[in-house]
Amino acid sequence: MVSRPGSTGRRERAKEDKRRRIMDAARALFAECGVGGVTTQRIADRADVAIGTLYLYASTKAELLILVQNEKFATAIDEGLRAAGAAVHAGGGAVASVLALVEPVVACLREQPENGRAYLQEIVFGDPVGPHCRDGLALALRLESGIADILARDAGNVPGEAAILARVITAVIHVSTTATLHLQDGLPEVLDDIRRQVGAVLRSPS
């Protein structure tokens, strides 16, 4: 069967429209209800697509959450890298520069704590070869590399040590944003906890 001119383009536009509707519906429902209060059927209904169509784009609710959060996580890392660059340019120390980088990331993860917690758990403990999880892991490594770059500029750190310290600080961020102990804390309290730990890791006054 020969496709008529323009039919492929229409199909691609229709696919992209469905994907956009699914993403918009998932984003809105996760924000409104948290991941635990949402079903894939409810997302499909909000997006006005059949449940089978939704599964063509993401086979589970967890995959949908990762898709949505990956977009937000990437934007937050971009914002943090710009802020960290400005802090370094202004002569801020390592702690201040690292905090400038991680603050938008932590704000993103704490916007809906249940979602941020579930997202990080999926990234850390989920299927590492799944395409969406793989993208999330790449973003996490980008954040870690950004921290390592800041630390490598400090005269007291060689590149290998900077990478190890960045891994430790990334673990601090994960624990402080997901631990049950901090679920009821507001963003300022979580950031202050991270600031104190980063200061201790870098042997800097808090």
Rank of each mutant, 00 (worst) to 15 (best):
S3I: 07
S7L: 08
E16C: 06
I22N: 00
M23H: 13
M23T: 10
D24E: 15
R27E: 10
L29N: 02
E32C: 13
G34Q: 06
G36D: 14
G37E: 05
T40Y: 03
I51R: 11
L54S: 01
Y55I: 11
L65V: 11
L65C: 08
V68Q: 03
Q69D: 11
K72H: 10
K72C: 03
I77W: 03
D78E: 12
R82Q: 13
A83T: 04
A83N: 06
A86I: 06
A86H: 15
A86W: 11
V95M: 05
V98W: 01
A100G: 03
V105G: 00
A107L: 06
A107W: 02
L109M: 15
L109G: 03
G116M: 04
R117W: 05
L120Q: 07
L120K: 00
Q121R: 10
E122T: 09
E122Q: 09
E122W: 05
I123N: 00
G126L: 06
D127K: 14
D127F: 08
V129R: 14
V129D: 12
G130I: 04
H132W: 10
R134H: 14
R134W: 11
L143W: 03
L143M: 09
I147S: 01
I150A: 04
L151E: 02
R153Y: 12
P159F: 08
L165A: 07
A166Y: 07
R167A: 13
T170R: 10
A171H: 06
A179D: 15
L181Q: 14
L181V: 11
L183D: 15
D185E: 14
D185Y: 13
G186R: 06
V190T: 09
D192R: 15
D192L: 13
V198P: 10
G199M: 11
G199L: 06
A200T: 11
A200C: 12
P205C: 14
